[in-house]
Design a protein around this nucleic acid. Structure first.
Lengths: 122, 122
DNA sequence: GCTGGCGTTCTCGTGGACGTGAAGGTCTAG
DNA sequence: CTAGACCTTCACGTCCACGAGAACGCCAGC
């Protein structure tokens, strides 16, 4: 299929697909006329990228997962490299959640506190 | 005081102070020679900016808090505009925490799941 | 008067993931 | 034969909060 069809089926822009190719994440075969040619496997790889990005992975971080799938493994998490990245991401997320909880607490505190009295509109 | 001293005392770069002035967040008086002149009130305002930024507010979002302080109110959260922004931010943070929890769960699931069997290195 | 340490403005660079034209080639239907 | 719906490659723009450097002015002490 051409870029437009893949774009349509995956719900991403053609610009995005060209961007992924630039990064070497999702290289495309070429037809005689220069048009990019994709297949069902590319759709699967693209889905993997979008899933991971959705989970907060940077594009570069998806590379080991794609390599894993291309190597014939059934899931992107079947390989050590990918699992390592995922573990790291889990730690990052845990850390972020902790910090956000602290922020949330502070925001709530400030809102709960009654507006201090002052000489103007309070 | 001049920009260098405020920078030093607040622990921010002079570039940052000039940036805040560009945005109109922290305008400075000028000496006859063109040097920026700041006072203790500016230090207080700057502290407010940094506190809010630390909590995840964008620079633009700090504006109502600064206006509130400049109007003579004892805290940045004494005014309706500022409280509204803070309430919105609290909702944003809650939402983000929820989504991150879901992401965390999914990441953990994928890691807990035993690597599925395949014909190569698994 | 000269060095050194301040200050000034201006302008471009950074990172991430693309958006948005511009200028053109290719293919299909009418 | 031509419209129009695809496709191609540049290459600059976006958002945000500054960093970095150039080229210059101001002022203190020696």
């Amino acid at each position: 299929m051409r870029i437009g069809e893949l774009s349509e089926r995956a719900g991403v822009s053609t610009r995005t697909l060209r961007h992924y190719e630039e990064l070497g994440l999702l290289p495309a075969r070429r037809r005689a006329n220069g048009y990019r040619e994709y297949d069902e496997a590319d759709l699967r790889l693209l889905a993997e990228i979008r899933d991971l990005v959705e989970l907060g992975f940077a594009l570069e971080e998806t590379r080991p997962f794609l390599d894993c799938l291309r190597a014939g493994h059934p899931t992107g998490t079947s390989c050590p490299d990918a699992r390592a990245v995922q573990l790291r991401k889990l730690a990052e997320v845990d850390d972020l959640i902790d910090r956000l909880r602290a922020v949330r607490a502070e925001l709530a505190d400030q809102l709960d506190a009654p507006a201090p009295r002052c000489h103007l509109t309070c």
